[in-house]
Simulated scan of single mutants.
Amino acid sequence: MKRIGLYLAASALFLFLLVWGVAAGTDWFVISRWNAKDSSVVVIENLLGRRIDPESGEGGEWESEFVKLLILYRSGPRAGSREEVEIMQLADSRLSLLPGKEYLLLADAFDDGTVQYSISDRYRVPAVVGFITFACGILVIVAGRSGFKALAGLFLSLLFLIGWFVPRLASGYPPVPFAVLSVAAVSVATCFFVVRKRELRPIPVFGAVGGAAGASITGWIMVSLWQLTGLESDSAALLASTSPGLSLRGLLLAAVMVGSIGAVLDVAVSVTSSMGELYEYDPSIPRKRLWKAGLSVGSDVLGSMINTLILAYLGSSLPFVVLIATEGADFIGLLNDPHISQEILRSVAGTVGLLLTIPVTAAAGVWWISSRRKEPPVPGDGLAD
């Protein structure tokens, strides 16, 4: 117990120093390279007063106010200097201005030489990076080598998706084929670090790609029958206006595939691990028994994974769902709403992808494991028996 206590204490101290160092280093890196002329990172040292903007009227929905602040510049050519500025904001602004906290100050210069200041948001980059480092450190401390491997697979997957997949889509490449390639690449990266037995790593890759392809086909059928345009969200509409050459329907299907990678891989890895353990316990296990074991484990995992997938989609669109509920929309109207239809598409297509992942992974596992038997298979143990 004493050794465990010392280990936890040392780990906590190391994690604290690591988080502090990463956050401080991130802050230095961002501030030293912040050269924007119309924005600065500032510290609010004091609130000097408020006054209502007479041109906006009092008590209206868009009532605005002027707030006089004493600020300390942290970035740009004026870093280290103090200045009194008067910013303009909505009177009911949800962003509280707190002395001692850091914010992003915007300066809009007009043709007559006047400058209008405003606070756009909190400066939170170091805190975000620090909390990410803290979460990763906790995972490594608790899970050890397995946690480190999981993080390595995650970061490699994110690097591939953000550094290769997204730029290809922005350049006008077809979304669905590149989504299939991305699913395969992410599956390979994840299985390389997560699946302990090296000889079993290709099996969940086959299952994940098969499940993602099934989700894509299901989504394509639903998009065609429901006549969804891919313009159902504000971000998609903005993207269409700035990049009219992009296929928004293809992006919708690609989003379904990429969004289901985690759940699909979870099911595929679970099925693969169970089949591998059974084969290791009994190398002469019949293929039919191996197939049934894979389906059985997949069915047990399926329920929780469907909940995970659908509730994740619901959570991501919860503000919009609450907005519709406050407007008193009826159930039929909700089903016909294009935003709701898009979320239903994601959920149904992702669920079909999960369903297909189980037999695809089981079939790939039977084929892959049987092809590597050291002894000949027992006569009459085929899948058709």
Rank of each mutant, 00 (worst) to 15 (best):
L335E: 01
G350R: 02
V297C: 00
L8I: 11
S182A: 12
L314C: 13
L239R: 03
V67A: 00
K288L: 04
S274A: 13
H339S: 12
G59L: 06
V186Q: 10
G382K: 03
D300K: 05
A254Y: 04
D38W: 10
D337L: 08
G353T: 04
L156E: 09
P379Y: 01
I310K: 03
L290F: 05
P319Y: 04
L97E: 09
S39W: 06
L69K: 00
I71Q: 01
V19G: 02
L318F: 10
S216M: 15
V194L: 00
L158Y: 15
V183E: 12
F165N: 00
L345T: 02
A135D: 08
F14I: 13
I132L: 12
V30K: 06
G333K: 07
Y7L: 15
P286R: 00
W367R: 10
I132W: 07
S56H: 03
S371K: 14
G210F: 02
G144N: 06
P174A: 14
G163S: 06
S235V: 15
P126K: 07
F29E: 05
S299D: 14
D282G: 03
E65C: 10
L72Y: 07
Q116D: 11
R287Y: 08
L72R: 15
L239G: 05
V180T: 15
L181M: 13
L231Y: 09
A189I: 10
A236K: 05
K197Q: 13
L314S: 15
S284I: 09
F148M: 14
E343A: 12
G328F: 00
Y281F: 10
L278T: 11
S187Y: 11
T133R: 10
W62N: 09
K292F: 14
V85M: 02
I162S: 13
F155Q: 09
R3W: 12
A349W: 01
S347G: 04
L17E: 12
P377C: 03
S81C: 05
L295D: 02
F66D: 01
L97Q: 08
G214L: 12
A208P: 11
V115M: 04
R82G: 02
L383G: 00
A9Y: 06
D266K: 02
P359E: 02
L104P: 08
T357C: 01
S347Y: 04
F131W: 15
V19D: 03
P77G: 12
Y279T: 15
W220C: 12
A150V: 01
V194G: 00
L383Q: 01
D108H: 14
E277Y: 08
D337S: 09
A263E: 05
V209M: 11
L309H: 03
K292C: 13
R287G: 13
D111V: 08
D282L: 05
A240I: 10
I306D: 05
Y313T: 02
S40R: 07
K2H: 14
G380N: 03
R94V: 14
Q227P: 07
A212T: 08
A325F: 05
V85P: 01
L158R: 06
W368H: 05
D53A: 08
W226N: 12
L335R: 01
E343R: 11
G382E: 08
D27Q: 10
I344T: 06
A170D: 15
S32Q: 07
S171T: 09
I119T: 00
S93I: 04
T26Q: 08
